[in-house]
């Protein structure tokens, strides 16, 4: 348990970590959480974490807390223009983390949402953290379900629980986790609340050999099911390294123009990244 921490970028000697970072309700203290913020350069990293979520749910706040960077945080739409990247280490293991533009859906076409969906679908992050607004849970859950249809390597950060408390809203976190089949962690990222638990959940999902399977939409209509399966096989034959061919087939059947174009000009194949778990040196 007393793993020595590599702490580049943190000008202090870490104290031995206590039991899982007991400070769950105070500002995130790196020495108490096995966390080292690595700023822009994660150096060698073992895992890639993507931060997804609706606009204004606190993605950049989480990103900054984990990396020590100052990605713009604010209260208006469209501020995360492209994706931002940084790094941290946790328990001595390096993570690269990507702060994605806010998106309500992976299915509608808009420039911001395309960035997010390309990374999630084809970049195959080891962990996708979906940051949701606890005061607007119903509005946020469709994206969680869409991400769960792509991967089981998901952690839900139920953020803004301080705001929710102020509004008298309590969320049954355990029930939500059971229904989604993935860890759900209550956080108030602006004050660091819950971030030690979030890190522990990220580590668990990143290192498990046995993630839950992606949620599969059940189509009552056997003809539709047959069409999806046939088309998915054809997509797989044309793009052998592409994950999520079933998802692509559904998009094609729905007439998604972006996916159609990417199939036609072959660029869909370029999106496929090396499989997860590959250890790379950052460029």
């Amino acid at each position: 348990m007393a793993t020595p921490l590599p702490t580049p970028g943190v000008g202090r000697t870490p104290e031995p970590p206590d039991a899982g970072g007991a400070c769950a309700s105070c500002a995130l203290a790196p020495e108490a959480t096995r966390l080292a913020r690595l700023g822009l350069d994660p150096g060698r990293y073992s895992h890639v974490v993507a931060l997804a979520g609706n606009p204004n749910t606190g993605k950049s706040t989480v990103f900054n807390a984990l990396t020590g960077l100052r990605q713009h945080v604010g209260n208006w739409a469209g501020k995360t223009v492209a994706r931002a990247e940084g790094g941290f280490s946790y328990g001595g293991v390096g993570y690269r983390i990507v702060d994605l533009p806010g998106t309500y859906s992976l299915l509608s076409a808009s420039a911001d949402e395309d960035v997010a969906r390309d990374v999630l679908l084809f970049g195959r992050p080891d962990v996708t953290v979906v940051v949701v607004d606890a005061t607007r849970l119903e509005r946020n859950l469709p994206l969680v379900l869409q991400v769960r249809q792509i991967t089981g390597r998901v952690v839900v950060a139920l953020n803004l629980v301080d705001e929710a408390r102020r509004h008298g809203i309590t969320v049954d976190v355990r029930h939500l986790a059971r229904e989604l089949g993935v860890p759900v962690v209550a956080t108030a990222a602006r004050r660091g609340e819950g971030l030690p638990d979030l890190l522990a959940a990220i580590e668990q999902v990143a290192t498990t050999d046995d993630p839950p399977p992606p949620l599969r939409l059940v189509h009552r209509d056997p003809e539709l099911e047959r069409a999806v399966a046939t088309l998915a096989d054809q997509v797989a034959a044309r793009f052998p390294t592409l994950p999520n061919t079933r998802w692509v087939a559904l998009r094609l059947l729905e007439g998604d123009p972006g996916i159609e174009a990417a199939v036609r000009d072959g660029s869909l194949g370029d999106l496929a990244a090396p499989p997860p778990g590959t250890v790379e040196a950052a460029g």
């Binding site: 309500y104 859906s105 007439g255």
Partner: peptide, 12 residues
């Protein structure tokens, strides 16, 4: 139908 329908559904 199509993208416009999707957009409305994504809006809840």
């Amino acid at each position: 139908r199509g993208g416009a329908r999707r957009r409305l559904m994504d809006l809840g």
